[in-house]
Design a protein around this nucleic acid. Sequence first.
DNA 1: CTGTTAGCGCTTTCAC
DNA 2: GTGAAAGCGCTAACAG
Lengths: 332, 332
Amino acid sequence: MTVTIADVAREAGVSLSTVSRALSDKPVIKAQTRLRIQRIAADMGYSPSAIARGLATKRTHKLGVLVLSLADPFVSELVSHMDQAAIERGYSLLLCTCGGDPQREMAGLELLHQQRVDAVVVADPAVPDKFLPLIQAGEPPVVLINKRHYPCSVATDNLVASSLAVQHLVALGHRRIAFIGSSRNRTESAERLDGYRLSLEKAGLSADSQLVLDGEGGYGGGEQGARFLLAQPCAPTALLCFDDLTAIGAMRAAAARGLRIPDDLSVVGVDDISLAPYTSPPLTTVAQDKEQLARLAVTMALTLAHGKGPVPGQILTPSLVVRGSTGPAPSA
Amino acid sequence: MTVTIADVAREAGVSLSTVSRALSDKPVIKAQTRLRIQRIAADMGYSPSAIARGLATKRTHKLGVLVLSLADPFVSELVSHMDQAAIERGYSLLLCTCGGDPQREMAGLELLHQQRVDAVVVADPAVPDKFLPLIQAGEPPVVLINKRHYPCSVATDNLVASSLAVQHLVALGHRRIAFIGSSRNRTESAERLDGYRLSLEKAGLSADSQLVLDGEGGYGGGEQGARFLLAQPCAPTALLCFDDLTAIGAMRAAAARGLRIPDDLSVVGVDDISLAPYTSPPLTTVAQDKEQLARLAVTMALTLAHGKGPVPGQILTPSLVVRGSTGPAPSA
DNA sequence: CTGTTAGCGCTTTCAC
DNA sequence: GTGAAAGCGCTAACAG
C-alpha cells in the first residue's frame, strides 16, 4: 500500500541502490538520473521510512526530552526553544513527561533508549541519583539542564541568580528578606537558597531561619508560603521566590492580605517567563537565558550523539530584570 | 555492542523466536522458560529496539503532535494532558512545533509521516487548507483540535464560549462590550466573534463595530488592543478577549491607564489556563476542558490508528468561571 | 511449546 | 555510475 523504494526502482527501471542514492543526494549519481528518480518518487507519493532508515543507519535523528511537566511555563518555553534548535539541525523531539513520579523517571529514560533516540536532554529537576550509572553508560548520551553537578550539563548559575536578587533588594534598603523555596525542585532550590544565604551574609545581614521556607512549588507553593510568612509577627519586607510561578502565587497572597506591591512588599522571582512582564505589577525577576540553555543543550547532545564527546559542562550567568514588583523598603 | 535478541537467544540456548515471544509476554511460552529468558535478558542489559520492532510490525506506538508553539500555556497544558493520556496507552509523543510558518506546517506533517507515527494530533490554529487532502488520505490518520469544521476533530464550542461570557457581562449591566480577537488564531477567533455578535443581538444590543478589534494574539495583542479601545471617546466598560493571554495583556493596558478592574472595567478571557486564578484580580474566563479535549483527541487518534474509523467529531461545551475580573458595569 | 524461515524498508560494501 | 547482495533487530507465519 505504501510505496517503497523498490516500487520507485521498478518504475524508474533502475536498481534499489540507485534510488536510495538518488534520494539521499549522494554525489555519485548522474545528475540527470537523480532528478528523474526524484521526480518519479514524488509523483508516486513516495515518503521515506525513517524507521527503516533508522534500522539501517543506527541513527534516528531524534532527540529524547525528559521533563517533569510541560505545565510549567519555564519548561515549555525551554522545550519550545529546543524544538526550534533541533529542527534546524534536522532532528525531532521525542517528548516524555514524567510528572514527578520517580518510577516514571527511570521508565522514561528507558523508553527513550528503546526508541533509540540519538541522545536525550533531561530537564527534570528531580533526576534521581539512580540515573547516574545510566547516564555514564552513555547509551544514549544524556545532557542535563540545570544540574551543574552532573557530568554533561548546561546550567544557569543559581548562586549568582539569588545573589543578584538579594543585592537588588538590599540596595533598596530591605533588611528582612524571606526565601520561598520549592520542594518540587529540590536541588535547584537548595542552590538558590545557598546564594541567598551567602549574599545576605556578605551584606552583613544574618539569615533569619524564620524567613526561609520550603514551599511545595508552583503558584500554590508561593501562595501558601507567602501567606505563612506574612502572618508572622515580624513579617519580611521582601520575598525572594524560587521561580516566577512561586512569585506570582506570593503576590496573590500579599494582595489577599491587602498589602500593596511594591509599597508594602517587594517580590522577586527567577526565570523570567514570558508572562513576567504582564503580572501586575510587572514582576522583577532574575532571567535565565532559556534560548541559550536550550541551544547549548541541543548542541551538546548532538555532539555526544556523534561520538565527539566528552564535552565540558556549561554554566550560564543569569541577569537581573528590574520591573515593578520591587521598590524601596517601607520606612515604617 | 548493544545486545540483541540473538545474543540473548544464544546465551539462553533457545531460538530467536522463543526469546521474542518470552519478551513480549506471549502466552504460549512455558512460564518457566519465559522467566528464565527475561532474567537473562535483564542481566545482559538487553533493551528492545522499538525501531526494529516498528519495522516488523508497522506500528510505532508513537503519536505525532503538531502545534503552533509550546510557548502558549493553553497549548502546553493540552500537550501535557495528551502525553499523560498517551503514556497510559503505551504511546509516546513525537513533537513538532511549527511556529506559524506555513511552510513548516506541511513539512511538519510530512516529517511525522516519515517517522511513521501511528496517528497525529494537530493543535495548530493555522492548519492550512492544503492539509485537507493529506488529512483525508488518512496516512497517517489525523485528528484536529478546535477545528470543528474538519472531519475528525474534537473542539470546544466557541459560539457557546463567547455567549457565556457575553451573557455574564450583560447580566452585570454592561452595554458597551468590546471584543479583542487574535489574528494568530483566525478561525477560532472568527467563531468566538460570531458567538459574541449573536448573543449581543439576542440581548437586544447592537454590536458596535468600533468595539471589535483583531489583535495580533498573545499578551501583546491584548495590550495593544485594549490600549486602543480604551482610548476611544466612548470606551467599552467590558472586554471579551480571545483568550486568557489576550485578557492578561488587556488588563495590563487598563492598569496603565489607571483603570481599576473590575470597578472601571470588566475583563473576561477564554481557556482558563492554570494561571488564570493567579492574575490580579483573578481572571473571569470561559474554561475549555483541556484534559477532556486531550483525552478525546488521543483516544480518537488511536481509534483511527487501529483502523477503526471513521469516528464522529466531538464538541465539548465550555463553562463560565467567574472570578474577580468582572463586576457590575460602572454606573457613571 | 519451540525452532525455521521470511520478510519489514532502507543503506552500504563490494563488484562490474 | 550503477547493480547485487548482505545485513540492521525484530516479528510472524509456518512447521514440527
